[in-house]
Simulated scan of single mutants.
Amino acid sequence: MATVYNTNHDSFTLPGFDLDAFVANTFAEDLGEGLPGGGLDVTSASVIPADACFAGVMDSRDAISVCGLPIAAAFFRALDPAADIELLVDEGARVAPGTALMRIAGQARALLTAERSALNTVQHLTGIATLTRTYVDAMGDTRARLLDTRKTIPGLRVLEKYAVRTGGGHNHRMGLWDAAMIKDNHVAVAGGVGEAVRRALGAGVREVICEVDRIDQIEPALTAGATRLLLDNMGPDMLRAALAIVAGRVPCEASGGVRLDTIGAIAATGVDYISVGRLTQSAPAADIGLDFTPL
C-alpha cells in the first residue's frame, strides 16, 4: 500500500516519523546538549554578531533527484521561526548541476547553526533518491518494480524509505512486523521451506514471503501457501526457469547481488519485483552546497 505524505515544508508528515523530534535530537547531538560546555554553537556565537542577517541559496553540484528539502527547511525554521524560506523545486524533481533548490534569509547565527544538519539530511536523502532513479531507469520498460530492503541506518528507516519512493522505487517491508519473510536460517531451523511456511500461516500471518535459492524449493513453498517468492541469487536463465514453474501463481521477487549493469536483464525475465539493498546501504551523498551572503 502506498504511503501518503505531505511535502509542504510547513506541514511535512510521514507515518511513523516525528519531524520535530528528529530536528530536536539532531541539534542536541550537534550542540552537545547536556555535556560540559555544550548547548551552543561556539563558533557562530563568538564570531557572528547577534543581529547579523544572511541570505543564501542551496544548489546542486551534480545531476540529482531531489529529496529532503522540506526537512532541511524545518531545521532552519526551528532556530529562526521568522526565516524567509522558498523551496524552488519539488521533491523528486530531476535537476541539472547548478540548479538552485532553496532560497533562505534570516538570522545569521541560526542559519549557520542549522546549516550542516540541513545539508547532511538533504545530501543523504537525495543520494538515495538519485541512485534509486538510476536503477529504475536501468530496468527499462518492463513490468518489474524496484524495491528497497531493511538495510537502513538505525533510526533513519522511515526517511530512507521515503527517499526510495521519491526516486521512483517502492518499499519492501517497513520492518519485522508487517510481513513474514522466511529466509535460509528460518528454513534451517524449521526443517524445510514447506514447514516454515506452514508455521507462519498457522500463526495467523497473512503475507508470507518465502526465499528460495533452488528450483526444487519452489513447489514445496507454493504448496504450503507462500504468498510471494523471493528468488535469491538466481541469474536470468534460472529466473526464467523458476518463473515458468511458478506460472503466475504468486508474485516473484528477484534479489541478491543485483547491480546496475545486471538489473536490466533481470527485469526482462518477467519478475514482478527486484530488491536492491544498496539503494539505502551504499548510496553516495549528493553534492549539494549552501552559500550565504550578509544582508
Rank of each mutant, 00 (worst) to 15 (best):
Y162S: 07
A190C: 13
E211I: 07
N171Q: 07
R206C: 10
T227C: 10
L231E: 06
V197T: 07
N171W: 05
N171C: 11
T227Y: 09
E195D: 15
R173C: 08
L230T: 01
Q217K: 08
L229T: 01
G155K: 08
A163R: 01
G175K: 09
N171R: 09
V212H: 03
R199E: 08
M234S: 03
E160T: 08
K161P: 04
G169W: 03
K151L: 06
L229G: 02
M234T: 06
V197Q: 01
D232C: 09
A221P: 00
N185R: 14
E219T: 11
M181V: 13
K161R: 13
D216E: 15
L176A: 11
L222H: 00
M234I: 01
D213C: 09
D213K: 10
W177L: 14
L176N: 09
D178G: 11
M174N: 14
I218R: 03
L222N: 02
D216H: 14
P236V: 04
G235P: 07
V205A: 14
I218E: 01
V208N: 00
G168K: 02
E207C: 12
M181I: 15
A190D: 00
M234H: 05
V197P: 02
A163S: 07
P154R: 08
T166Y: 03
T152P: 04
V197E: 02
E195Q: 15
D178V: 12
T152F: 06
R214I: 06
L229W: 05
A221S: 09
E211N: 11
K151A: 02
P236G: 10
G169A: 07
A226P: 02
R157T: 07
A224M: 10
A188K: 14
D232P: 07
G155H: 05
A190Q: 06
T166L: 13
V193W: 04
L159N: 06
I182N: 04
H172S: 09
G204M: 13
A226V: 09
V164F: 04
A224I: 06
V197D: 06
G235K: 12
E211P: 04
R173Y: 10
E195I: 15
V205F: 15
G168T: 08
A179Y: 10
R199M: 14
E211H: 11
L231D: 00
Q217V: 08
A163Y: 03
D213H: 13
R206N: 12
R228Q: 15
D237W: 08
K183N: 12
D216M: 08
A226R: 05
A203K: 13
R198L: 13
D213F: 12
G175M: 09
M234Y: 00
R173L: 10
T152I: 06
G192P: 00
R199A: 15
A163N: 00
W177H: 15
V208F: 09
A224N: 07
T152E: 03
G194R: 01
M234F: 10
C210E: 00
L159S: 03
R173W: 10
H172W: 09
K151E: 06
N185W: 13
